[in-house]
């Protein structure tokens, strides 16, 4: 807790320079703009996973559920404000009758993203009351089931395009560089997410989550309202996942129910890998992990095309088996070992 408390000048400088890098990055590296946007969204995914998985000890394999709900939720709002969603999807979003002008597109995004966050948060509240009473591997496998079931159900609903997926609104030409707009929205979301979590973890709520992770029965016997805390954390995480999903949908433009929206075997497990790689249960860990992961992923996709899943699978195994504390955790463990020596 103490680590988040002080906003020293040194820290402010660090934050300011990070912010400057974030603002300048797409202008300096225009060729990697898409990857940078994706990275920012991955940071949100990893942070949100870690709030519940790392800080609270509830390892969800189904957080992709909230990404997918946000993705569809935003797209439905963006389209539904101006057109009939069923007709739009039946025409595969094409044709001359489904054109969005600048005010329509902006309104759609402005309402779609918060709506996505609310939809996912609401789903987390509903489901959380049921599944957060389970622990350990039951929770893990149950959430895995939730994520995959959602994809299968989405693939069966013609109104949202069924198995052939849904397109997000085509950005109007007049708007200019939409990709850059999406980048800055993602940057804003990632910063909001990191600051919100930094604040949360500095409060007693953050301590309560850690207490639940370390010994939930004890926390309960000490009178902590563990269930309420768990559901609250999940709802907050889901809100950010939903908003990130909304942006992600607009970045990739095409929402496939199983491959993009509820992609348990890709994004669903990547977000766990990112948090683990950087360091579970720390604030910096998921951010560091997302950066390292995104670089590795791009390398795999470039040099190991066709075998990229194999490479990622091997990476998952290697991290789970040999490096479970992650980068930040590794550094911190060495610090803790020193403190222990001093104690003796």
């Amino acid at each position: 807790m103490a680590e988040y408390r002080a906003l020293t000048p040194k820290r402010l400088l660090l934050i300011a320079s990070l912010l400057a890098v974030g603002v300048a990055a797409p202008l300096v590296l225009p060729a990697y703009q898409l990857q940078l946007t994706e990275l920012l969204l991955f940071i949100v995914f990893a942070l949100a996973w870690d709030l519940v998985g790392g800080q609270m000890g509830y390892n969800s394999f189904g957080n992709v559920l909230f990404v997918g709900l946000g993705m569809y939720g935003a797209a439905i709002v963006q389209v539904g404000l101006f057109y009939d969603v069923g007709l739009y999807n039946a025409a595969r979003g094409g044709g001359t009758q489904f054109v969005f002008d600048v005010p329509q597109f902006i309104t759609g995004l402005a309402l779609g993203i918060p709506a996505a966050a609310l939809i996912s948060a609401f789903a987390a509240w509903l489901l959380g009351s049921l599944v957060l009473t389970m622990r350990g591997h039951y929770f893990a496998i149950c959430t895995l089931g939730l994520g995959i079931a959602a994809g299968q159900i989405a693939a069966g609903i013609p109104w949202i395009g069924a198995g052939s997926g849904m397109l997000t609104p085509n950005p109007p030409e007049a708007l200019g560089d939409v990709a850059l707009l999406l980048y800055y929205l993602a940057l804003g979301l990632a910063i909001t997410c990191a600051l919100t979590f930094a604040w949360l973890l500095s409060t007693r709520f953050g301590l309560a989550l850690n207490a639940i992770r370390d010994d939930e029965d004890k926390a309960e016997a000490m009178g902590l309202k563990t269930h309420a805390a768990k559901v609250t954390a999940w709802v907050i995480a889901a809100g950010f996942l939903g908003a990130a999903g909304a942006l992600y949908g607009n970045v990739v433009r095409f929402i496939d129910p199983v491959q993009t929206a509820f992609a348990g075997a890709t994004i669903g497990v990547w977000m766990i890998l990112m948090a683990l790689l950087g360091g579970k249960g720390t604030l910096a860990g998921p951010i560091v992990g997302a950066i390292v992961f995104q670089i590795m992923k791009e390398l795999f996709w470039t040099y190991l095309l066709g075998w990229q899943r194999v490479a990622l699978g091997l990476l998952i195994i290697a991290v789970a088996v040999f490096f479970p504390a992650g980068i930040v955790g590794f550094i911190r463990e060495r610090g803790s070992a020193k403190a222990k020596e001093q104690n003796q």
């Binding site: 390892n59 394999f61 350990g136 591997h137 893990a140 496998i141 075997a265 497990v269 766990i272 683990l276 075998w307 899943r309 194999v310 990622l312 699978g313 091997l314 990476l315 998952i316 195994i317 789970a320 088996v321 040999f322 479970p324």
Partner: peptide, 24 residues
Amino acid sequence: HLLGRDMFNSVLATFGIAIVMQQV
């Protein structure tokens, strides 16, 4: 390497095995 470790590690590692096997 997973024997006696936290169940989460074994679920994740065997999930990794599954992903590798799928593409192979």
